[in-house]
Design a protein around this nucleic acid. Sequence first.
DNA 1: GGCATTTCCTTACGTCGTAAGGGTATTCTT
DNA 2: AAGAATACCCTTACGACGTAAGGAAATGCC
Lengths: 229, 229
Amino acid sequence: MAGRGRPRTLSRDGVLSAAVLRADRTGLDGLTMRALADDLGVEAMSLYHHLPGKAGLLDGLVEHLMTEVDTATAGIGTGEDWRDGVRDRCLAARDVMERHRWGPGLLMSRTAIPPSVFAHFEAVLAAMVGAGFTHHLGHRALHSLGSMVLGFTQELFAPASDSDGAQSEEELAAMAELLPHVTAMVAAELHAADGDVLGWCDSRAEFEFTLDLLLDGLEAHRLRGRSAS
Amino acid sequence: MAGRGRPRTLSRDGVLSAAVLRADRTGLDGLTMRALADDLGVEAMSLYHHLPGKAGLLDGLVEHLMTEVDTATAGIGTGEDWRDGVRDRCLAARDVMERHRWGPGLLMSRTAIPPSVFAHFEAVLAAMVGAGFTHHLGHRALHSLGSMVLGFTQELFAPASDSDGAQSEEELAAMAELLPHVTAMVAAELHAADGDVLGWCDSRAEFEFTLDLLLDGLEAHRLRGRSAS
DNA sequence: GGCATTTCCTTACGTCGTAAGGGTATTCTT
DNA sequence: AAGAATACCCTTACGACGTAAGGAAATGCC
């Protein structure tokens, strides 16, 4: 039964992988059907035999994204401390989002939650409920953690470099006057980073800091709930 | 000097307001130059005399967004407790983002931070530094709070309603088997909300919960830093 | 009135996603 | 081996998008 007809040079997975590569390089805007087909040495309309249109392509990207999170979290068991597992899961998700910066924007653009995301909610929720979380607290925790994974835009404090990379002295002076605290903060952090401009705003460290803030708070709520029951 | 020439029926502010209305109704995808011009009883190219292209229109939308936050936070003074001011500022920003659901996506799509956003960073940072935050802790706090405001997608748990609004029984059964904890959570929360489907996932309450988690954690860090110095 | 000026409209180009139908390469049948 | 069946890919075309270029209309000043 299989094998009759022209041999396929494309496959759904191949198209999706190429789409991920292209999105990584050019962003979602650069991911057009024609450009993607060109990457694959094929014409645009050929893609429609493997994917149901552009929307289906984006759905596939979400799927691919969550599969990456799957493999990154495969080794996470249900240890005794709920925090370890949840923490690792969040960090894994963040790493994937950093590898694919189009991820958060794509996920937020979906109107409904993709099924592939629910699986991760389930895993996190299971760990928390197993540790004594009420469903209510678990619900709120999912919101807290999910919003952080999606919202952490690591580029937030990119030095707003223009094409040349350096702002004019006047602009800097104006900024220093209008935003004294921000200016002082940047100066202090740059000094602390010892001139490491790329590392002065270490996204991983910021993320872990916020994550621990949330986990600490959730743990406190968990204990409070236990004693109150 | 002013008044010579054809009387203008459009203005930058008018165009921007119409754009906000349209984006609210149709989302950013529905905000096209032609459709926007049509709303204003005008042809598309006429908009280019008031705005420098589509990118400029989006910049204007960001500006409008932040102006709304400005007016919502106008009455916030520098009270004795840093938390009150910061909390109100975050809630105000959230309310604006809820009014204009395209806001987070638009902000995250900008490669560099818009200047209008820096003003709010400055205000929050000023309150925190004034309360004894180091610049380092202030920096991390900005990341934490900013990512939450952007990441809190209130629709996360929308019941994934299809066109008809109700899933098939099989789907529900399959979901209950694959996602027992999520299913139990939804059931428990729906029961607690007493059948108020719209309110079962009260975005405002979830946001305040997470916000207080962060504020509590930041306050703890502040106190720890004080005693250590 | 005529003129300069400002504003808006018309037309057109290249891009996008994609509907419709024609070519081409393979395997199964005879 | 030759034809039929089948699966795959390509060509062409349409409407919608952002927008560059230049023409038409409505005002104030002389």
